[in-house]
């Protein structure tokens, strides 16, 4: 579904990703892991078009999307949940979902209801400003907003970071359900146990390069744990 071929990404003159290649097959859940600062979020920014690729290319469903703007990628079927439970704080919960639904050409009429079914905790909060939600509720809203556009590939950047345990379980259940329903998912995650429970495949980044990749069953191996330890 998504193929990344040898991309280099830099902030100005400072290169962060070096010749990164990976593949997200249709209906697969691929987990990108690595220590802090190895380039995981930078990789997602590059996949969403928020950062340009210096070289290499990104293809989605056979189309070369390397130079596409973020909104074009969203319309093509890529949903993105950024790190840090980002929401439009001035807009109400309903407006956060509505604004994503209105610009989506693929979304069906029930898309907002479907997203709320996944996170029923949000239903009584629809009229509340998103800026006043708790971190966990904001993360659920952020995922729901990405789902309203009915993407075929979902990019999730550390969805459990700084979230209370009970909501982590709800988010995990939602991701498992989405994966079971056939959604392709690229999950950036720090917690190994969480990744082991969810992923089909993994990619470990180290110093901006792909250090190791393979089936999720390898995630428990000492060599893999070594790459993730401080």
């Amino acid at each position: 579904m998504l193929t990344v071929s040898g991309i280099d990404v830099a902030y100005g003159r400072s290169r962060v990703l070096f010749d990164v290649s990976l593949e997200i097959p249709d209906r697969a859940l691929v987990c990108v892991m690595g220590r802090n600062g190895v380039g995981k979020t930078t990789l997602l920014h590059a996949l969403m078009g928020l950062l340009p690729c210096g070289s290499g290319r990104v293809t989605f469903d056979g189309s070369d999307i390397t130079g596409w703007r973020p909104e074009r990628r969203v319309k093509a079927g890529i949903g993105y949940v950024p790190q840090g439970h980002e929401v439009f704080g001035q807009l109400t919960v309903w407006e956060n979902l509505q604004v994503a639904w209105e610009v989506s050409t693929a979304a069906k009429a029930s898309a907002i209801d479907d997203a709320l079914d996944l996170f029923p905790r949000l239903r009584p909060l629809l009229k509340r400003r998103a800026g006043f939600l708790s971190g966990g509720q904001q993360q659920q809203l952020s995922i729901a907003r990405a789902l309203v556009g009915q993407p075929r590939l979902l990019l999730l950047d550390e969805p459990t970071e700084g979230i209370q345990p009970s909501i982590i379980l709800e988010i995990e259940a939602a991701i498992v359900g989405l994966h079971r329903d056939g959604l392709s998912i690229l999950l950036v995650e720090q917690y190994l146990d969480f990744a082991i429970r969810l992923a089909d495949q993994y990619v470990i980044l180290d110093a901006g390069e792909v250090a190791r990749a393979g089936p999720a069953s390898e995630l428990g191996e000492p060599a893999v744990r070594q790459l993730l330890s401080l």
Binding site: M48, G49, P70, V74, Y80, P82, L91, V103
Partner: peptide, 20 residues
């Protein structure tokens, strides 16, 4: 709504499918 979204967070708006 789109205007308010872009004003508040341009990058997030673009990643939500809004043409900034």
């Amino acid at each position: 709504r789109r205007t308010r979204a872009v004003v508040e967070n341009r990058q997030l708006a673009a990643c939500s499918g809004i043409s900034t």
